[in-house]
Design a binder for these strands. Structure first.
Length: 572
RNA sequence: GUCCCCGUAGCUCAGUUGGAUAGAGCGUUUGUCUCCGGAACAAAAGGCCGUGCGUUCAAAUCGCAUCGGGGAUACCA
């Protein structure tokens, strides 16, 4: 917000000075405090265009800028940077605005109501959600929340591959388990079958209800029944896990239903009409290499069945038909070879392939006791999303997953996640929120200081450097959210909250909020920390993490308290 | 072979899309409590931003090359 205002006044300066302008300069917060509140490179960027020396240009712009009432000081440094120091009153004014906005702070119209479709998780309906899904759920849901906050109209969608080969295997696996439960000897459990314990439990339940009846049905009906049963139970399981994780979907799309609507035939004929299919080796191929893929792909196999690509393409066409401005797919790293053919088909069918964005989440390594935990799907030895949430809690899991860039591998340290102590960043942040609540409560109960409605004059008593720094951080929040939404990089919000919490803890250690001798300053400070609390709460909510007013005391925390003094006394 | 991602402090990672002296947390070392909750704070040590060349006023950031790590390359889904 401030950046925009400054950019405008700089543009005005350039106009009054009659200089050529290519609008390529930027305004930013310098990482060195001695360089002012904001800094711009205009003079350097425009020097060539105007055939002038950067520092000379800077001098002229400086004189113009000083006419602005909000600008207190302008300095020229280095090769031609213009460093701007703003008046404290401006920050105080903006703090007052944050207090008035309350929970709506950061809500903007930036996205202009553009429609966004986020597809994520879309795990196979053949078993419980695992930690890969947990990362995808965290990413998709957090991005969804942030995008809606800044004025986009985003929707969350889950695509269920409830048709095809794997589902047949699922039904067969369940039948084997059912026979096993009933005491039949089925021999070795097949390698390609699903080995997870959940199918045994499902078989148990099924047996006690309708086991006899089921096995008397003709094979075809029996498999269909088992399939439906398995799909429904697993869907319930997944829904349940997601609910515990505070992730909801606006829409579930079933592949089976799509197929029944005849979209498969439709897509095949569309592609044929576009003249990009051919027959070879008894199969039907899509000449995707003409549209940027490395090689051509099979649409219909020699045995007459279709490849998974066809219904998936059909599904993506429905996304286009539903009129979204951006279509975002969140996929695992093993799918990246798949995107070129999808985009190729979209291009071939004359849709705008630029609308489709794909975000890849890299793999996750779980670490325990410094060792990588090995997982094997075949042996049914996987760590599920439920295991993880039960173990470390939703707040910690979500924060750990969102904290990293998407295209980096994620090392998840179980030991650190389990620790309810100072090493765990989640508690550090939550503690900042709880601490503020506690101070406000104390001011009210023990000192009878109530701040009531936001007061502009109270903000005038905030002049300490640390206070101005905090205000600056808070003021940057809306812009951060917009940038996070546009770059699809929610991890930056996690970094932001952590930094804000840190700034607060430092401020707290240095400056006392409550001072009965000086009620004016006390009120100003109470307003400031209220604003910090507000932003922490908004940010944590966007991350799907709780913002508690009180921390639960744990043995780990109590232990930490005694640690330092005893260390010292032992030494001496 | 081809394609994609990653190489930043001992470890795990940021780095505001090209800015000034590269930052956190953990770990290590040393400190701070008659304290508004110590799950906190202060300080020290720790770096050729994998390597080389290029682009320009300016490169951890962009381009090319190269080395190292991971992944993808089905008529599986």
């Amino acid at each position: 917000m401030i950046k925009e205002i400054l950019k405008n006044s700089i543009n005005n300066c350039i106009d009054t000075l009659n200089l050529e302008n290519n609008n390529k300069f930027n305004v930013e917060v310098p990482n060195n405090k001695n360089h002012g509140d904001y800094s711009t490179n205009v003079a350097m960027v425009l020097s060539k265009l105007n055939q002038r020396k950067p520092r000379e240009l800077a001098e002229e712009i400086k004189t113009e800028l000083l006419n602005d009432a909000h600008i207190e000081q302008v300095e020229i440094a280095g090769p031609g940077f213009i460093n701007i120091t703003l008046a404290k009153s401006l920050f105080q004014e903006l703090l007052y605005d944050i207090l008035k906005a309350k929970a709506d702070y950061g809500t903007t119209q930036h996205g202009a109501g553009k429609k966004i479709l986020l597809e994520f998780v879309s795990a196979n309906p053949t078993g419980p959600l695992n930690i890969v899904s947990a990362r995808a759920a965290t990413y998709g849901d957090t991005l969804y929340r942030i995008m809606n906050k800044v004025g986009y109209e985003a929707k969350r969608e889950f695509y269920v591959n409830d048709a095809g080969n794997q589902v047949d295997i699922l039904a067969e696996s369940l039948e084997l388990r059912l026979r096993q439960v009933r005491g039949e000897n089925i021999g070795e459990f097949p390698v390609e079958a699903y080995h997870g314990e959940y199918l045994v439990e499902m078989a148990d339940e099924l047996n006690s209800n309708e086991g006899n009846r089921l096995l008397m049905l003709p094979e075809k009906d029996r498999i269909e029944k088992l399939k439906d049963y398995a799909l429904n139970s697993i869907h319930e399981m997944q829904l349940n896990s997601l609910e515990k994780y505070d992730v909801e979907f606006d829409n579930w799309v079933s592949e089976k239903k799509l197929r029944n609507q005849g979209v498969v035939e439709e897509v095949l004929s569309f592609l044929a009409e576009a003249e990009c299919t051919y027959e070879k080796d008894d199969a039907i191929w899509f000449s995707s290499s003409k549209y940027g893929d490395d090689k051509d792909r099979v649409l219909m196999k020699a045995d007459g069945s279709i490849t998974y690509f066809v219904p998936d393409l059909a599904y993506h066409l429905t996304k286009y038909q539903r009129g979204f401005d951006y279509i975002i797919d969140v996929l695992g790293p093993d799918h990246h070879g798949y995107v070129p053919r999808l985009k190729a088909a979209i291009k071939a069918l004359k849709y705008d392939e630029e609308k489709l964005e794909v975000v890849f989440l890299q793999q996750i390594n779980l670490f325990e006791d410094g060792e990588k935990i090995k997982m094997s799907k075949r042996l049914g030895k996987i760590i599920t999303m439920d295991d993880l949430v039960d173990e470390v809690g939703k707040d910690v899991a979500r924060f750990f997953f969102i904290d990293r860039r998407t295209n980096a591998h994620l090392n998840f340290d179980m030991d650190l996640a389990r620790k309810q102590s100072d090493e765990n960043p989640v508690y550090y942040i939550q503690y900042a929120h709880a601490r503020i609540s506690s101070i406000i409560k104390k001011a009210r109960k023990e000192h009878e200081i109530r701040i009531g409605k936001p007061s502009r004059t109270a903000c005038n008593f905030l002049n300490e450097e640390a206070e101005i720094e905090l205000m600056k951080k808070l003021i940057g929040f809306p812009q951060l959210l917009e940038s996070v939404a546009d770059t699809r990089e929610p991890h930056r919000l996690a970094t932001y909250v952590f930094e804000l919490a840190g700034m607060f803890h430092k401020y707290y250690a240095k400056h006392k909020v409550i001072d009965e001798e000086n009620i004016d300053v006390t009120k100003g400070r109470l307003f400031l920390i209220t604003a910090v609390k507000n932003v922490l709460a908004i940010a944590l909510d966007l991350l799907g993490v709780n913002a508690p007013d009180r921390m639960k005391k744990t043995s780990a925390a109590k232990g930490a308290k005694k640690k330092t003094p005893t260390k010292k006394s032992k030494e001496k």
